[in-house]
């Protein structure tokens, strides 16, 4: 096949767009709490569920969650996995442990790293606590919490978190 008959298999059309996100009222309150070393959630006025981080609404009742609730950094691992796949977008080298953590008093588990714990000791029901960055490094970001680590407490019973898996 001559050069001129080779198929055109691709064109280059670079696209570049920039966006400035709006955190929103609920996330703004949560992120300001992070800057003070506090974990702020919101309670649904109808069903009473506490959302941490808050999304500003109850996904079940579709009403604004305007009651602010502070919870501590203590919680329970509801499920976990050990990541062994490297990725350019990760700030941490594999392997590492990711977990869903249900903070005491909250009704929505969230995704976080577990450290200071051997992989074969991570388990569902394990009690953990937040490890914060040093006070002078606190900021309006989820990264104010570096990771969670195990604490010396008996495991939570499966019954206590089975609704939140």
């Amino acid at each position: 096949m001559s050069e001129s008959l080779k198929p055109v298999t691709a064109i280059k059309a670079p696209v570049h767009l920039e966006f400035s996100y709006t955190a929103g009222r609920a996330s703004t309150r949560f992120l300001r709490g992070m800057a003070q070393g506090k974990i702020l959630g919101q309670r649904c006025p109808e069903c009473g569920k506490v959302y941490v981080p808050p999304r500003g609404s109850c996904t079940i009742c579709a009403v604004p969650t305007d009651v602010e609730v502070e919870v501590t950094g203590k919680g329970t691992v509801t499920t976990f996995c050990i990541v062994r796949i490297p990725s350019d977008s990760l700030s941490i080298d594999p392997p590492f442990t990711c977990a869903h953590i249900l903070l005491d008093g909250a009704d929505l588990p969230f995704f976080a790293l577990i450290q200071e714990c051997p992989f074969d000791e991570v388990r569902m029901g394990m009690r953990v606590e937040a490890v914060w960055v040093p006070k002078e490094e606190l900021g309006p970001t989820f990264e104010s919490i570096k990771y969670f680590r195990p604490i010396d407490e008996p495991d939570a019973s499966f019954e206590s978190y089975k609704e939140h898996l």
């Binding site: 996100y21 709006t22 955190a23 929103g24 009222r25 609920a26 996330s27 999304r55 500003g56 609404s57 579709a62 009403v63 604004p64």
Partner: peptide, 16 residues
Amino acid sequence: RELDANEVEMVMPVVS
């Protein structure tokens, strides 16, 4: 420019 509310917070009162 709605700087206060995100999309969910914009939609919710209107839907309600």
